[in-house]
């Protein structure tokens, strides 16, 4: 069965992260999961780990659009300084589907999708 080997969630809302964790685990579609409540923690982590041997590039980043200090786009820009854009695939998570956001997302080649929270098993499957 096809699986994600590593999914990374960057969302400042802990209950949402926890819920997504449960959905991922129950779906059996994900091997490893990594959650960050703080955008800076995620950036620090990849800054530190990306140079180490054996670093695994995540299959997908799920990035919340609204976080303190950064919005989703700004976080992707910071991440682009650390990880090669061509290998980064990101899904933007939002609570409200705002047309302007989708238009802006076209400027970011690493964005492969937009999802209104919460994630469901079907949504996960669609990104496989």
């Amino acid at each position: 069965m096809k699986q994600f080997s590593l999914l990374v969630f960057i969302d400042d809302d802990y209950p949402t992260n926890r819920y997504h964790e449960i959905i991922c685990q129950e779906s059996g579609l994900c091997k490893d999961l990594k959650f960050f409540d703080m955008p800076d923690d995620a950036l620090d982590y990849f800054q530190r780990e990306s140079t180490k041997p054996g670093f695994r590039m995540p299959d997908l980043f799920f990035v919340d659009m609204n976080m303190p200090r950064y919005n989703g786009f700004q976080l992707l820009e910071k991440l682009a300084d650390i990880l090669p854009v061509s290998q980064t695939r990101a899904v933007m998570l939002t609570t409200s589907d705002i047309p302007g956001d989708r238009v802006k997302a076209r400027d970011y080649p690493q964005i492969v999708g937009f999802s209104v929270k919460p994630l469901s098993e079907e949504m996960l499957r669609s990104f496989l």
Partner: peptide, 8 residues
């Protein structure tokens, strides 16, 4: 977000 959490 909090409402969605309640529902989740």
């Amino acid at each position: 977000e909090p409402i969605q959490n309640i529902l989740n």
